[in-house]
Amino acid sequence: MAFTPRATASLLAAALTVLVALGSTAAFSQQRTQERRGERAGEFDFYVLSLSWSPTFCAAQSSGNRDQCGTDKNFRFVVHGLWPQYEKGYPDFCSSGEPARVPNNVGRPFMDIMPSMGLIGHQWRKHGSCTGLTQREYLAKTREAFNRIRIPDDLASGRAALTLSTDAIEEKFVAANPGMSRRGIATSCEGRRLEEVRICLTKDLRFRDCAEVDRGGCRISNVTMPPAR
């Protein structure tokens, strides 16, 4: 098909409009990324303490994680992370004067509750950097938050597999922790297994409600907690 000079000019103008629009979209996306990465450390509303059920994590590890999932390990609930949150959304990967890598002498004393230096380092870079704390302060705050929680005895044992509703899991945590509300806790699942229990805390680690976190919980009726090894 032959194009007239006018038609050719129209096609070129349309193509140029599309290219400009695509360029603007890319620039806007890059700007939004820069804005997220530029979030200011220490400016957030509350914390989420995420407790991972280690047997679920280890069941999905094909190559194994020896620190957490070795045959001589039998972790139950461990800390996935202590996450600064906004009422909607959360900051991540904030600028910090601390190094990106967490030194062994700083991280290893916390491996009883966060059993991997890889996990500790990642949590520092993504979440801890946004708290306004140093690495040592962030890890100490994480332990303080973990110690704040009483894990229900029947959930903590890990002696045998348990299958129960997510409501029952949350109710057990609420019953074991005075001041905790069902509106301040959420479970997450991996398939039909319990993955994590997420608990909302104020900056001084008191229990608080958190609507967005609560809404994001697992929606299936029952989950299984695999036994510890």
Rank of each mutant, 00 (worst) to 15 (best):
R192P: 12
R125A: 14
F146W: 09
E35T: 07
G132M: 06
V18K: 00
R108Q: 08
W83Q: 03
S165C: 00
P55R: 01
P103C: 08
D214S: 14
D153I: 12
E39R: 13
F44V: 12
K203V: 10
R192D: 07
S221I: 01
V223K: 04
F57L: 12
P55I: 10
D153G: 07
R206E: 13
D153F: 11
T33E: 05
T17R: 07
L51W: 14
G97L: 11
R32D: 01
R6T: 12
S96E: 10
L194C: 07
S95M: 14
R219P: 15
R150W: 05
M180Q: 02
N105R: 04
A7R: 14
G38S: 09
T202R: 03
L162E: 02
M180F: 09
G132Y: 06
F110H: 05
M1K: 02
W53Q: 02
K172E: 00
L16G: 05
V213C: 06
L201R: 10
K141V: 13
C58F: 12
I220D: 00
G121I: 08
D167F: 06
Q85Y: 03
A7C: 14
K141T: 09
A15W: 01
D167T: 11
W53F: 13
G107T: 04
E39V: 14
V106K: 03
N177K: 13
H122W: 08
R37Y: 04
R32C: 05
E196Y: 02
E170W: 11
N105L: 02
